[in-house]
């Protein structure tokens, strides 16, 4: 049986790991390569690296980091942040990234999803969607959640699937950084709406939140950062609790 995935997210800035609370007040939480290797050993199912300060100038630094991670880590990992071209994705995959995550660039130019999935296969194209619920309706936000759009979450999710995305990473801006649980109602709706895996992101605070997102939220994977980086929830203990609750996990 396919298991539910636990995915620590490492936010990267200038080659270092950081985690924002509601995307501000950054706190340093270590060396990405050391952290990645540690997570692989502790039972993480895969990893996401998000370059939150990606620019053309520091692209080389990120590629170098990806290469270092690929050399040492024996579980899959995704790289996201500032990716907007086929050439950039080609370079990341050649450095050993398994998947790439695109966000604002896909909204600005949706054909990018088609181009990437045709050239590299859907399996390596993750479309990240940051959305905020405003008066009951979910709207897509850009640039790390700072720029609102009038694009509706569920319409966009359907479109990215049709264009060839292999997976959707959905972050609720209402929940991110709150540690009050994932946006399970929206997640469950998404999961029924599309036929590709959904990674839940934003709101992880305790074990029950993970149980809830895999059951009520119908999520295929759950992503979190600070609860893992600061050791608040040890991954193995989390997986044991999930197993006790009849949620299939890899232990």
């Amino acid at each position: 049986m396919l298991t539910k995935r636990i995915v620590p997210c490492l936010d990267i800035k200038n080659g270092r790991t950081v985690k924002g609370v509601n995307f501000v007040n950054l706190i340093d939480a270590g060396d990405p390569v050391v952290l990645a290797k540690q997570y692989a050993d502790l039972g993480a199912d895969e990893l996401v690296f998000l370059d939150i300060a990606a620019t053309l100038e520091n692209r080389g630094t990120t590629l170098d980091m990806v290469l270092k991670v690929a050399k040492q880590v024996n579980i899959p990992f995704t790289v996201g942040g500032g990716i907007s071209s086929v050439e950039h994705v080609d370079a990341l995959l050649k450095c050993g990234a398994d998947k790439v995550s695109i966000n604002s660039s896909a909204v600005k130019r949706p054909d990018l999803i088609n181009e990437l999935s045709q050239k590299f296969g859907s399996q390596c194209v993750v479309v990240a969607i940051d959305a905020k619920q405003i008066d009951g309706e979910w709207f897509v936000h850009l640039a790390g959640g700072t720029i609102p759009t009038d694009i509706k979450l569920f319409e966009w999710a359907k479109e990215v699937e049709e264009r060839g995305a292999g997976e959707i990473l959905f972050t609720s801006m209402n929940h991110d950084g709150t540690k009050a649980g994932f946006a399970n109602k929206a997640l469950a709706y998404l999961s029924d709406l599309v036929n590709i895996p959904i990674i839940a992101s934003g709101g992880a605070g305790n074990v029950q939140h993970f149980i809830d997102t895999f059951t009520l939220g119908k999520s295929d994977a759950a992503l979190a950062a600070s609860v893992f980086h600061f050791g608040e929830i040890p991954i193995l203990e989390l997986k044991q609790k999930l197993k006790e609750n009849n949620i299939p996990v890899r232990i």
Binding site: L2, T3, P76, E167, I196, P197, D220
Partner: peptide
């Protein structure tokens, strides 16, 4: 959901390729 993405088990192992690998070991598939 398609693709199948994640860790699933392999069973009925029948080859030297799987020497010292236990039944229902987890492998990553996409």
């Amino acid at each position: 959901k398609v693709p199948q993405m994640g860790w699933n088990v392999i069973a009925d192992l029948k080859s030297d390729l799987f020497k010292d690998i236990k039944e229902k070991e987890f492998m990553y598939l996409v």
